[in-house]
Nucleic acid binder design. Structure first.
Lengths: 112, 112
DNA sequence: CTCGATATGTAGTAAATCTATCTATCGCGA
DNA sequence: TCGCGATAGATAGATTTACTACATATCGAG
């Protein structure tokens, strides 16, 4: 998956991953990559600012920990974040429904 | 559908509409709105610059006509545009597949 | 005759992702 | 032992793309 087809969708993806269990940023990237079979390959430069925005918006909460000199920031979903996720999932279904009927067809040319 | 969830997807939608038959810009907006049951409501300020980009890229071709003093610019898909559409449709399927498995679930909370 | 729909267009703004770069630790292989 | 890749987090600036607001012009309805 290239470019910014993700625009506006990434936030929901991150919330969905965090809804399962609290994990740290780097692990979110790996999780998205694994669960999409490599299709979603975001970089730190994309994810970390997004997580900061989510925290500022009160959708996630973070706590620092250190494991062998390596500092980790573990994020978890807040109640607000949970509600936001539910909305995003609803919006996702609408989105797929709206675009699917137009994009899904093989489009074998003019139906003249 | 609000905001820029469409980002990166609108180009494919327009190509898909034009693949059926050549129509003019305003009619493309109406077609997208009708086929999405009102979910896709783009404005002229979004569509016309996009059509110009598509034409510059050689994916569509346009011709002017006049009907009762009203000038219309009718767009049609080029061969390049047809190939681009096929790519976009493939990318769409990948996109839905990749995000669907993550976003589709009702997410009833941590599966602890 | 004015208003809304039709029809096309430009200018400037906003937001989100991208690339590039930086810091720092750890484990592994040469 | 030395360096490199993976892990882990972060910032800065560029780019893309949709948005709003505005401008023009014709036509039909009230």
């Amino acid at each position: 998956m290239q470019a910014d087809l993700l625009k506006g969708h990434l936030e929901g993806l991150v919330l969905a991953v965090l809804a399962e269990r609290p994990i740290h940023g780097y692990a979110i990237m790996e999780s998205l990559k694994a669960r999409s079979h490599g299709a979603i390959g975001i970089e730190g430069g994309t994810l970390y600012p997004l997580l900061h925005r989510l925290e500022e918006a009160g959708l996630v909460r973070s706590s620092w920990s250190t494991q062998g000199g390596r500092r980790r920031r573990t994020y978890s979903l807040t109640a607000r974040g949970g509600r936001a996720l539910a909305e995003k999932q609803g919006a996702w279904r609408e989105f797929v429904s709206a675009l699917g009927s137009i994009m899904a067809e093989p489009s074998t040319g003019p139906a003249k």
